[in-house]
């Protein structure tokens, strides 16, 4: 299970769900697994699973149907893409720049590396 690293588990779960919505693994309007299923599969406390899923519910990405389960909201993908661009800057770009500064790279060198990466990754 990829639950390791810097972030609390409930955030990692929330991000995985977002990832699944973005990639289309959980299409808009479809039902997602229950809290028990997430908790049992990932071996996490159900309260933690609940906390992670509630992040998506309060962001309007998932909605609950009483007695039936949870579903992906219409427009969730577009919403996520927009959020992700800002998060990309905060989480990746800033870290990348910091690490580049640690390594003593200047802006031109960093730009060159990004260009190299851009064309290397297909």
């Amino acid at each position: 299970m990829p639950f390791q690293g810097e972030k609390p588990i409930f955030l990692q779960l929330a991000e995985q769900l977002e990832e699944a919505i973005l990639s289309g693994a959980y299409p808009e309007g479809s039902q997602v697994p229950s809290i028990t299923e997430y908790a049992a599969t990932y071996k996490i406390n159900p309260a933690t699973a609940n906390k992670g899923i509630n992040l998506l519910v309060s962001a309007g990405l998932l909605y609950k149907k009483r007695g039936i389960g949870m579903f992906v909201a219409e427009g969730a993908r577009a919403k996520l893409r927009q959020q992700r661009s800002e998060a990309f800057y905060q989480d990746y770009v800033k870290k990348l720049v910091r690490e580049a500064q640690n390594l003593g790279l200047d802006l031109d060198q960093l730009t060159e590396l990004i260009q190299r990466g851009y064309y290397d990754v297909h």
């Binding site: 809290i35 028990t36 908790a39 049992a40 599969t41 071996k43 996490i44 406390n45 159900p46």
Partner: peptide, 13 residues
């Protein structure tokens, strides 16, 4: 692994 899964299932039900 099976024990932990069953424990969580039991606990949440």
């Amino acid at each position: 692994d099976l024990f932990y899964r069953l424990l969580i299932e039991k606990y949440s039900q």
